[in-house]
Design a protein around this nucleic acid. Structure first.
Lengths: 343, 343
DNA sequence: ATTAGCACTTAACCACTGAGAGTGCTAAAC
DNA sequence: GTTTAGCACTCTCAGTGGTTAAGTGCTAAT
């Protein structure tokens, strides 16, 4: 990263912060006034011209002030993270009280979390429940449902209960189902869904096992039961962001709504980010999703050891209050992590 | 309803249809040309002035053409329904193929249905899964989960499986749970959730029963297990509607997004509508929700006998292609009904 | 009862203007 | 050598006025 002298940095930060607070391009006069540098606008102008040359700022037009580029935001955010600026504030305990009551239903928990986040931040709140790949099976129960249909109930370690109706093609007694469940529990409980899927494929290739009708049936059930693809994605707060001055442009609103309707792509993105520790920030053009190149994402994975058990975050304009966003996301992620750990 | 002579009606319909197809106020010239009334613009003008006086049309400003009022749309829609205009088209079978594969998971089924509807209509697709009040319990299973926590699995007649984790405050053996489940099944299976809730309250008031610890526990479990409030609401297609000329206005977009984020209110609305038969249409100001007074709703309940088992529909601008919307909603509702009946 | 003709109204478009904000550059000051 | 005051320059924005086109309501003729 380019090295900037202290004064230049300060001015860059001043521009960024001012722009975050007031959505108009910021001029040299404003910087000189609001922040007591003891420098005249003319000097600031020179520095700002340098910053523009280096790609941290840009002018919408000749006679306007400057606006940070994505690179400018990036530099600013790095300094925030370096100083752990967001850690100095107090946690949001009172606001999580509501969430405490929802701990037993993880889907509702995550969906309410997005609402809390969006109300706090005035940006979009997002959350993704644990992806099954890394979810471990605690117990499986198989119940006869109707005719040849059975219901597989999967209990996971994190309080998620998933169920799936499976058509077998032939009737089967509850007794047999119980035996199958017993076999599957002894074989698979404690393993992640991913491992189970692999094991199933392995087992199925062994011919001798396939001769045992019960086991072969059991494996077929597994194949269907464990093919959830991803965690659920929750998004809320669209009406919040529409009040921002950044969204007076219809085109931008369309882009955003297209982006959040394409849940699959966001899920894939969050999936990658869930591997990493701490708060992750993606600013505008850094984003690989085309529709998201005008927006920023601030997320943090909830982890247990190094196993991700969910992701919470914020989507907003690149002109985002990063400090506040990081602070909210960091706190929320830690809160959820703690809550799920207590199980 | 005001009686209009045939010619006046025809002109009203012409204005409405033209406006639905081209989003500009329609003038007397256009009506005279596009539809072969054999009348001059001047005559049409007189009729249109009458229609305005009666409240079916209005002029945005003096030198503009006319636009239908909500009352105008209502009159038009009544005639559509009276003639069953939408029935003449062929069903959308090919497009439902995708939905067929999802019949075993009612939540995914409904959420995908909204997507299908919004792609077909270019408006918002909405769907509400069966509300528990009228869902009948087929079987309840209670499984030990962890410590004092148990999981109640509710099997309903329509392939919905709901589960709920309940903290009991004291450990309990699986054997006891089985006995409780047995008791509850014999007592409640076949009844609607609503009935069960009432019964539970009754039972709990009988003192002698409360002496039996097991039964009193069973009733407590029920109290918690059956307190789902409403069905889930699914909405999709926001990016579709943003392409409509009706949504160039930022204010309207905000209103719409606020309306669909306030799911609770919409659920209550759909709840009422789910009692009625056939396609229901609410036009603009007819709507009791303030945020929805600029939009129209076209919905139809999926029913089994007179028991509603879900609602599907469309939300769009009042300038909606009602004929198409009714046609899509009607077909989709019938399709889902048929599909769920086959269980 | 219908229609042609015409005066009237209004939004939309365009070109123009002046004010205001902010710049870059140069020359003076520290 | 760095900082600053001064100034000419550029560009947006809001407001103005004039023109056009669309569509009306009214009146008088058919």
């Amino acid at each position: 990263m380019t090295m900037l002298d202290e004064r230049t940095k300060k001015i860059l930060y001043a521009v960024v912060e001012n722009y975050i607070n007031f959505p108009d391009p910021v001029g040299s006069r404003t910087v000189a006034k609001s922040y007591s540098f003891g420098l005249s606008p003319a000097t600031i102008r020179n520095v700002m011209a340098d910053l523009e040359e280096m790609g941290f700022l840009l002018q919408p037009h000749t006679s306007a002030g400057r606006v940070p580029t994505d690179m400018g935001y990036r530099f600013y955010v790095e300094s925030l993270v370096a100083e752990s600026a967001f850690l100095h504030k107090e946690p949001l305990r009172e606001l999580y009280k509501r969430l405490e009551t929802l701990r037993d239903n993880i889907d509702i928990l995550f969906s309410e979390t997005t609402k809390t986040i969006s109300t706090l931040s005035h940006y979009l709140g997002i959350a993704m429940s644990p992806k099954p790949e890394v979810t471990t099976l605690k117990k499986i129960e198989i119940l006869k449902y109707k005719d040849d249909k059975i219901a597989a109930i999967l209990f996971t370690d994190k309080g998620m209960i998933k169920n799936k109706v499976i058509s077998l093609g032939a009737e089967i007694t509850q007794k047999d189902l119980n035996r199958i469940a017993g076999y599957l529990n002894s074989e698979f409980s404690g393993h992640t869904f991913d491992e189970i899927r692999q094991k199933v494929v392995q087992e199925m290739s062994k011919e001798k096992i396939m001769c045992d009708r019960l086991i072969s049936r059991a494996l077929k059930i597994c194949q269907e039961a464990f093919c959830f693809l991803y965690g659920d994605l929750f998004v809320s707060g669209l009406s919040e962001v529409l009040d921002l001055p950044d969204f007076t442009d219809l085109k931008k609103i369309k882009e955003l709504s297209r982006a959040i309707e394409d849940k699959h792509t966001i899920i894939k993105l969050l999936d990658k980010l869930s591997e990493l520790d701490g708060v992750q920030i993606i600013i505008g053009s850094e984003n690989s999703m085309d529709e998201m190149k005008k927006f920023s994402i601030v997320v943090s994975a909830c982890k247990e050891g190094d196993r991700p058990i969910g992701v919470v975050g914020i989507i907003g304009p690149t002109r985002m209050n990063y400090s506040k966003a990081i602070y909210i996301v960091d706190n929320t992620a830690k809160f959820i992590t703690r809550m799920l750990a207590e199980r």
